[in-house]
Nucleic acid binder design. Sequence first.
DNA 1: TATCGTGAGGAAAGCGCTATCCAACCACGG
DNA 2: CCGTGGTTGGATAGCGCTTTCCTCACGATA
Lengths: 362, 362
Amino acid sequence: MTDTRSTPPASGDAPAATPDRRSPVTLSDVARASGVSLATASRAVNGSARKVRPDLHARVLAAAAQLGYTANGPAQAMARGRTSVLGLVVQDIADPYFSTMAAGVVRGAEQRGLVVTIGTTGRDPAKEAQHVAALRGQRASAVVVVGSRTDDAAVQARLAEEVAAFEASGGRAVLVSQESLPVDTVVVENEQGAEALVRALTERGHERFAVLAGPPGLLTARDRLAGFRAGAAAGGGRVVDDLVLHGDFTRDGGHAAMHRLLDSGFDRGCVLAVNDVMAVGAMAALRERGVDLPGAVAVAGFDDISTLRDVTPALTTVRLPLQEIGERAVELLLDEEGGGPRTVRVRGEVVLRASTPDLRRR
Amino acid sequence: MTDTRSTPPASGDAPAATPDRRSPVTLSDVARASGVSLATASRAVNGSARKVRPDLHARVLAAAAQLGYTANGPAQAMARGRTSVLGLVVQDIADPYFSTMAAGVVRGAEQRGLVVTIGTTGRDPAKEAQHVAALRGQRASAVVVVGSRTDDAAVQARLAEEVAAFEASGGRAVLVSQESLPVDTVVVENEQGAEALVRALTERGHERFAVLAGPPGLLTARDRLAGFRAGAAAGGGRVVDDLVLHGDFTRDGGHAAMHRLLDSGFDRGCVLAVNDVMAVGAMAALRERGVDLPGAVAVAGFDDISTLRDVTPALTTVRLPLQEIGERAVELLLDEEGGGPRTVRVRGEVVLRASTPDLRRR
DNA sequence: TATCGTGAGGAAAGCGCTATCCAACCACGG
DNA sequence: CCGTGGTTGGATAGCGCTTTCCTCACGATA
C-alpha cells in the first residue's frame, strides 16, 4: 500500500512559473519538454511506487515548474478511480458548534492533502443520506457526517444504507454523534457530561432544576436531559418534570422556552439548557423579565462555545473539545481499519462560572 | 480484473433500487440494460442538447433507477473539461464572520447544484493564491475568495495572477472585500459604515473616541479606522491619535489592546473596536478592571455577529448582512458577465444598543 | 563468456463519460 | 418515384492521467 499522496510536490515557490499560459499544460507537455515518456513524467511528478532515476526526476520537475504544470484533478481522480475529497456534512455551517468542528476537520484534512467539501442539511436529517449519496457519485474518498441523531427509524435506516453503499464503493465514513450505526464513530459523552455538571451544581448548593430540553426527537438533547436527571438524583437534588420544557435547539428556542417557564411561575432555581446558545437565549429572557440573574435564577449550558465565553454573567457549561472532535474524526478516517466499527469517546469537562454561584459560600 | 457484469436484464423485479450493488454501475451497464447505445443513455440521463425519443428516454431512466446508477463525477468532469465545484477560500471557518458568509455561499451554491469546497488560510494571505491555484488544478468552475486585504503588494500581485490564470482557464472568480483587483467583487462599505456609526454616537453625545484598530496592514481595519476618524470629525468629536491602538483582529487582540489602553490612563470615553469580537474582548477587559461599562467607558463594534448579540451591555455595532454577502457572491459568479469587472457594494446599518448610552438624555 | 535477475524507461490499455461525426430514417415537395 | 432537409440513434474519438506490461541494459552468478 503506497501512501504517496498525490499532493503536488512542486515546491510552493516555483521560481519562474508562467501561470498565465492560456491552454492548460498537460503532463504530456511536461514529458515532451523534458524528453521522457508520459509514464516517466507521471511517476516523477507524483510519488509513484516506481522509482525514477534522479537526474530524470529532476529534469521532469524542472520542466513542470517551468511550464507551470498543474495536475488535472478530475483526470487523476478518474484514472485512480478515487478523488482526494473528504465530504463533510453538517446541519448548519453558521452554527458555531458545527463551524468549530468543521475547522478541526478542515485542518486535519488539509494536513493530509485532502480537499474538504461541505454540505448542509438545514436540520433536515433526511438530507444527510442524500449528501452521502452525492458524495459517492463524486467518488469522494471519505465522508464525515456530523449527525442530528433523530429517533426517526426510517431516516436512520436510509442513512445507514447510504453509508454502507459508500463504504462498499471503497470510501471511508465516520459519523460524529450517532453511535447507533455500524460505522466508525466519534461520540460525545453527553449523558456523562450532563450528569457531572449537575453533580457539581448540587455540590454548590443548587437543588431545584428546570431544564430547557430542546426538541423531543433529538437524541443529543435527550441524552443530556437524561444526564441532568441522573446527576440531580445522585446529588440529592431533583429535576421536576413540570419544569422540563421542550423547544428549538437554538438561541430563540431557549429564549422562548425560558419565557414560558417564567410564565408558569418559575422564579427561583437553576435552569439547565441542553446547549449554550439556548442558555444564552434564556439569559436574555431573564434579563427582559427583570429576574435577578444569577441571584434568583442560575443558568448553565452545554458545549462551551467560544464566542459565548464573554456573556455576563459568565456561563457555566460543559466544555466540548469541538475542534479536536473534528480532527479525531479525520484521524479515524485515515487510519487503517482494524476489525469492526470503532468508536472514539470524547468527554466534556465541567466549567463552573458565575452564572451558577456557589450557594453555600454566600 | 474482468468486468463481466452479470447484469440481470430481468426488469420489474423489485421496485426498490438496489444501491447495495458492489461494483459501481456504469452508464454502459444502463445502456446495455435498456438496449440503447452508450450515447443515447448519456443523452437521456443528463440533459443534453440533443433530444431522445420519449419512450427510449423513459426506458433508460427506468433502467438507471433500477440498477441504482450514479454518475461518476470525475469522469463527467473530465469529459466535460470542468467540474461543478465552487471553491470557497476563507481565513478561518470557525470565525463567525466567515462561517456566516460561508453559509450564504453554501446556500446559494446548493440551490444551483454546485458543490462547495472550502479552503482556509489561517490568516496567511499568501495561502489565498495557493488555494486558487489548487482550485484551478481541480478544474473548479468558480471560486470565491473572502479576502484579508493586506497591503503587501507582492502577495496581492500573486493573488491577482492566480485569479487571472483561473479565469483564463475558463472559471469564474469573485472576491469579497478586496476591490483593488480587476475581478468581480463584493465590497463592504467599511468606511461609510464606520463613519455613520460615529456620527450616530456623536449625536448621542459621545465626544472622545479611542480606537482598537486591528493589525496595521489589514486594509479592512484601516478603512474602518478611517471611517471612525471621518465620522468623529464630522460630528465635532475627535479620535485622539494617542488612543489608536493596534492589535490582533481577534477577541484576544481586543482584550489585550483594551488593557493597554487602560494602562495608559484612559478611563472615560467611547472605545471603537474595528470588529465585534475585539469589542467583546475589550468589554471583558473593562470588566476585569472594574471600569463602569457603559457608564464611564462606552464600547462599539462592527459586523453584528449574531452569537454576540446577547452580551451585556448589548453591543452597539454596524450590522453587515454577512449571509447575504455570500449569496450575492454566488449570484455574481453565475450571472453572465457583462463587460469589465463588476462590483457589488454592500452597506452596513448602524445598530445602537446599550453599550453606548445616550449621554444627552441621561 | 553465457545466463539470469534486477531496475528503470516506454508503449499502450484503459478509467467512465461527453460530444462529434455518420448513417438511418422520416416526411415532404418536385 | 427520387431528391432534400430535418431528426435521432449509434459508433467512436478523445479528455489527461495512472498503471500494467514489455523491453532493454546492466551487473552478478555460474
